[in-house]
Design a protein around this nucleic acid. Structure first.
Lengths: 154, 154
DNA sequence: TACAATATTGTAATCATTACAAATAAAGAG
DNA sequence: CTCTTTATTTGTAATGATTACAATATTGTA
């Protein structure tokens, strides 16, 4: 099965109508696992889809994000946040109250065969989800609707 | 010793002239470990320093970053990058070639007492430094100048 | 005091992203 | 097939955080 077909299948499985643009953007992401930006995707597909608009790339990626077909690389807040604690430590971002919590990561000992010979200068660990307070505040909702899902592949 | 004094000391230790503005910004960061944004710092200090300019906050934080007095929270690229691999995995950013490498994080098993009861929905691991290729290409430089430093607290 | 170096400020530019409304294409009903 | 509705795509303009830059103010030193 070629990439175009895989893309169509993936789209259908996620209840996204497989328009040409969507197929191409998804196929590009699948065949070019270089963590591309909107600009890169746009430039790469322009020859094949001359009428393509950058807005469409944004829209399509937002749709893919919502359907969890793609993930953003990095932890993107609107504004930069600064930390006077320069020790290596983890950050937990609560998507409800939008607070950032610190946690210790000393016990995280990693052997990363893929990075053998790499010069690792900084290690960052970011978790996200719902903090204890916000879980309690929304306990009633949690039981009823889909707003709070159980842990996924964590 | 109060916070102002600690701030002065920290600045001097890092060869930064302890101007009033710098003292206040650093003291704010030390006493408010809430990972503030430029806007937050600016708004908080405006009553005390009515002539404060937001540009100064930016400049000062850039200086602090350069002297490693503060760290940015999150992994900030100029543009968003997208990944069609939605499995949890780590990313390594090479600051020389600016490529992003994937690595497996399955063996990272974490027990985080600080996050007990938190609903963890996503785990992200970001390393940065210099990749193998770029280290090799710059071997000659690596021995001579300060461009490539050894690992720090990793 | 006077000079030079450093800090701070305000305005304007930049640039990724978003909002929004118009244009186009596709699907469904008759 | 044709009309009507809905979904998709597009282009332009706005937003908002950050940066560039030149002007002003402050500090340290002779």
């Amino acid at each position: 099965m070629n990439v175009l077909d895989s893309a169509v299948k993936l789209l259908q499985e996620n209840e996204i109508r497989p328009s040409l643009t969507r197929i191409h953007i998804l196929a590009y992401l699948l065949t070019n696992p270089v963590h591309p930006t909107v600009e890169q995707i746009y430039q790469a597909l322009l020859p094949q889809i001359p009428t393509l608009s950058k807005t469409t790339v944004y829209n399509t990626l937002d749709l893919f994000l919502a359907k969890k077909l793609v993930k953003p690389v990095g932890v993107e807040y609107k504004e930069k946040h600064y930390d006077a604690n320069t020790q290596n430590h983890g950050h937990f971002f609560c998507r409800v109250c939008e607070k950032i919590f610190d946690f210790d990561t000393h016990y995280i000992e990693t052997e990363t065969p893929e990075l053998k010979g790499f010069q690792i200068e900084a290690k960052n660990v970011y978790y996200s989800g719902v903090c204890l307070d916000c879980r309690h505040k929304n306990k009633h909702k949690e039981d009823k609707n889909e707003k709070f899902e159980g842990n996924q592949d964590c």
